[in-house]
Structures are given as structure tokens and as C-alpha cells.
Amino acid sequence: MSLHLIKLAVGAESVQDMTDWVKQRLKEKKRKGQKPEHIHTTRMVPKRADELKEGGSLYWVIKGQVSCRERILDIRPFVDKEGIGRCRIVLDGKVVPVEPRPYRAFQGWRYYPEKDAPKDLTRAAPGVAKMPEQLRRELRELGLI
């Protein structure tokens, strides 16, 4: 059974915003001749890194809702120039919308067991996946989806 991370997407306004941001970062890396990997750098190394690498995803909270995910490919601890231990979470760069769930703000990350993870939106509600994100948010807030 996979283990996942849940993290705030600071600055992202929507799933589309997150998708565009990831695409732009990958494009920039390619332009610079770097390996086109989507890497999220954190201060701490997850203690359960091995479990995360066995099919886990990073679920992003956008504007108070778990909204999308990216598959975790690797966890790479390192020490920065100032001697501070950090961690690179390597993601597949494919932002997948998920069944939205409210989630309040927090610091760092939280673990998400497979049984509690939201389903991909295309599997949970195929018709809803085609709706504009803002409409999905409004319908969710009204308790209609």
C-alpha cells in the first residue's frame, strides 16, 4: 500500500496555475540543458521516504482544498551551501486533478495513507473533471459535488 505526502501549494491559485508553473519550470530546465525534472525542495527529509518512493504521490493543497497530485519518483537528501540539510522531492511533472477535499493550512507536510487519498478526478467523477475548476469549487462549497 502506497504512502503519500500532502503539502500546501503556496502561490498557486488553481490546478491550471500549478500545471502551467510546472510546465514552465521544466521548459526552463530544458532550455538550460538541465535534466527536465520537477523538483520540490524542502527543509526536512521525510522519515518514511522508502514508502513514498513505492508509488506515492505528493498531493497539493490549493486555496484550502486538496486539488491535484504528482507522482513521487525519488527522495534526494542533500546539504546546501550553508551546511543545512535539505531534501529534493523529485516528481513526475504530470499534475493530475483529484477529487477536491477541504484541508486547512499547516506547515511542512503531512503523510497520507493510500486508503485516505482522494481519487483522481477522472475516476471519481468523469463528467465533473470536464467542468471549469472555479465551477467545481463553487459546487463543492454548496455541497453539490
Results as ranks from 00 to 15, higher is better:
Lys47Asn: 12
Lys47Met: 04
Lys47Cys: 03
Arg48Tyr: 07
Arg48Trp: 04
Ala49Pro: 09
Ala49Thr: 09
Ala49Gln: 14
Asp50His: 13
Asp50Ser: 15
Asp50Pro: 03
Asp50Trp: 06
Asp50Glu: 15
Asp50Val: 08
Glu51Gly: 14
Glu51Arg: 15
Leu52Glu: 06
Leu52Ser: 06
Lys53Ile: 03
Lys53Thr: 11
Glu54His: 15
Glu54Gly: 15
Glu54Cys: 09
Gly55Tyr: 10
Gly56Val: 07
Gly56Ala: 12
Gly56Gln: 05
Ser57Pro: 04
Leu58Ser: 03
Leu58Ala: 03
Tyr59Asn: 02
Tyr59Val: 01
Trp60Ser: 08
Trp60Tyr: 14
Val61Ser: 06
Ile62Leu: 07
Ile62Val: 14
Ile62Met: 07
Lys63Phe: 03
Lys63Val: 06
Gly64His: 13
Gly64Gln: 10
Gly64Arg: 14
Gly64Pro: 10
Gln65Lys: 14
Gln65Met: 13
Val66Asn: 01
Ser67Val: 02
Ser67Asp: 00
Cys68Thr: 05
Cys68Asp: 00
Cys68Glu: 01
Arg69Trp: 02
Glu70Val: 04
Glu70Leu: 15
Arg71Trp: 01
Ile72Trp: 04
Ile72Ala: 12
Ile72His: 09
Ile72Gln: 10
Asp74Trp: 00
Asp74Thr: 07
Ile75Cys: 12
Ile75Tyr: 06
Arg76Asn: 13
Phe78Tyr: 15
Phe78Ser: 11
Val79Lys: 14
Asp80Pro: 07
Lys81Ser: 07
Lys81Gly: 00
Lys81Phe: 11
Glu82Asp: 12
Glu82Ala: 09
Glu82Lys: 12
Gly83Trp: 14
Gly83Ser: 09
Gly83Phe: 14
Gly85Pro: 08
Gly85Arg: 13
Arg86Phe: 02
Cys87Asp: 06
Arg88Leu: 03
Arg88Val: 05
Arg88His: 15
Ile89His: 01
Val90Trp: 05
Leu91Tyr: 03
Asp92Ser: 10
Asp92Phe: 11
Gly93Val: 02
Gly93Ser: 06
Lys94Pro: 00
Lys94Val: 04
Val95Asn: 00
Val95Gln: 01
Val96Arg: 07
Val96Phe: 01
Pro97Arg: 11
Pro97Asn: 05
Val98His: 02
Val98Ser: 06
Glu99Ser: 03
Glu99Arg: 11
Glu99Ala: 06
Glu99Thr: 00
Pro100Asn: 11
Pro102Phe: 05
Pro102Gln: 08
Pro102Thr: 05
Arg104Lys: 12
Arg104Phe: 10
Ala105Cys: 01
Ala105Val: 07
Phe106Ser: 00
Gln107Ser: 08
Trp109Arg: 11
Arg110Ala: 03
Arg110His: 13
Tyr112Ile: 10
Pro113Gln: 10
Pro113Asn: 08
Glu114Ala: 15
Lys115Asp: 04
Asp116Met: 13
Asp116Leu: 13
Ala117His: 00
Ala117Gln: 00
Pro118Arg: 06
Pro118Phe: 00
Pro118Ala: 10
Lys119Ile: 01
Lys119Phe: 11
Asp120Met: 13
Asp120Ile: 12
Thr122His: 13
Thr122Ala: 11
Thr122Met: 09
Arg123Cys: 05
Arg123Asn: 08
Arg123Phe: 12
Ala124Glu: 09
Ala124Ile: 06
Ala125Thr: 00
Ala125Asp: 12
Ala125His: 15
Ala125Ser: 13
Ala125Phe: 14
Pro126Glu: 11
Pro126Ile: 05
Pro126Ser: 12
Gly127Pro: 03
Val128Tyr: 10
Val128Glu: 11
Ala129His: 12
Lys130Arg: 14
Lys130Phe: 04
Pro132Asp: 13
Pro132Trp: 05
Glu133Gly: 10
